[in-house]
């Protein structure tokens, strides 16, 4: 783990893996809860890092950095909570292309994808848009060469090994494999975001599919 300076009020913890970053994120949330973290405005996890922003000033940043340098995060990324279930119709316009890249039949994409338990690694791009980790490396797919000008709300999409669900209509370059009616983001409810970092997620096909092994050989 490295600690990098970010201006005079923030620092960035950089881990070697996404799992280690998640463990650090959980550790920092626990410390904030326990009152053993100096006041920060934001704790922002991302792919390999956790940003701590809104510290009092350079001295607070230095002290915290020194304190963190000798620490090891607990490995368990937070207490186990029931996974959020998101019903999905696997009917996206890129389903066939994703199936081709995965080397499976189009009808099998749902089975592979819905067998995975995902974890929200971080949010970004739009309020309530979670980057969901969990797909094995071999199911990684590139972004589309040409992004779509408009992706509908509820589109379930892949890029790299990430899965995301578009909370509202927006331009987007991810591969669309399905659609959900679940509302990802609603500022009229509390919490507004269905998915926040650390939350576990399962996608449930609305049309039942024949069960297959979660990670087919090959």
């Amino acid at each position: 783990m490295r600690v990098l300076p970010v201006g005079e009020h923030a620092l960035l913890l950089e881990a070697d893996t996404g799992e280690e970053a998640a463990a650090w994120h959980a550790e920092l949330l626990r410390r904030r809860e326990a009152g053993t973290l100096p006041p920060v405005r934001e704790i922002v996890p991302a792919a390999r890092t956790v940003l701590l922003d809104g510290l009092d000033g350079p001295d607070a940043v230095r002290r915290l950095a020194a304190g963190l340098a000798g620490l090891r995060p607990q490995t368990a990324p937070g207490p186990a909570r029931a996974a959020v279930e998101i019903p999905v119709r696997y009917d996206g316009p890129d389903l066939a292309e994703v199936a081709r890249m995965w080397g499976v039949a189009p009808g099998e994409v749902a089975a592979v994808h819905s067998a995975v338990e995902f974890r929200v690694a971080f949010c970004g791009f739009a309020p309530g848009f979670g980057y969901l980790a969990g797909l094995p490396e071999r199911y990684g797919v590139p972004r589309r060469a040409t992004p779509r000008a408009s992706v509908p709300a509820g589109a379930v999409a892949l890029a790299g090994t990430w899965t995301g669900v578009y909370p509202r209509p927006s331009p987007g370059g991810w591969q669309l494999i399905g659609t959900t009616d679940t509302v990802l983001w609603d500022t009229a409810r509390t919490p507004a975001a269905l998915l926040s970092p650390g939350v576990r997620v399962r996608f449930v096909p609305v049309v039942p599919v024949a069960p297959v092994a979660p990670e087919p050989a090959g």
């Binding site: 970010v6 201006g7 009020h9 923030a10 960035l12 934001e42 922002v44 996890p45 991302a46 792919a47 390999r48 890092t49 956790v50 940003l51 922003d53 971080f122 970004g124 980057y131």
Partner: peptide
């Protein structure tokens, strides 16, 4: 660079 948190003034 894998996505990382951004601050005001970055």
């Amino acid at each position: 660079l894998p996505s990382e948190g951004m601050v005001l003034g970055a």
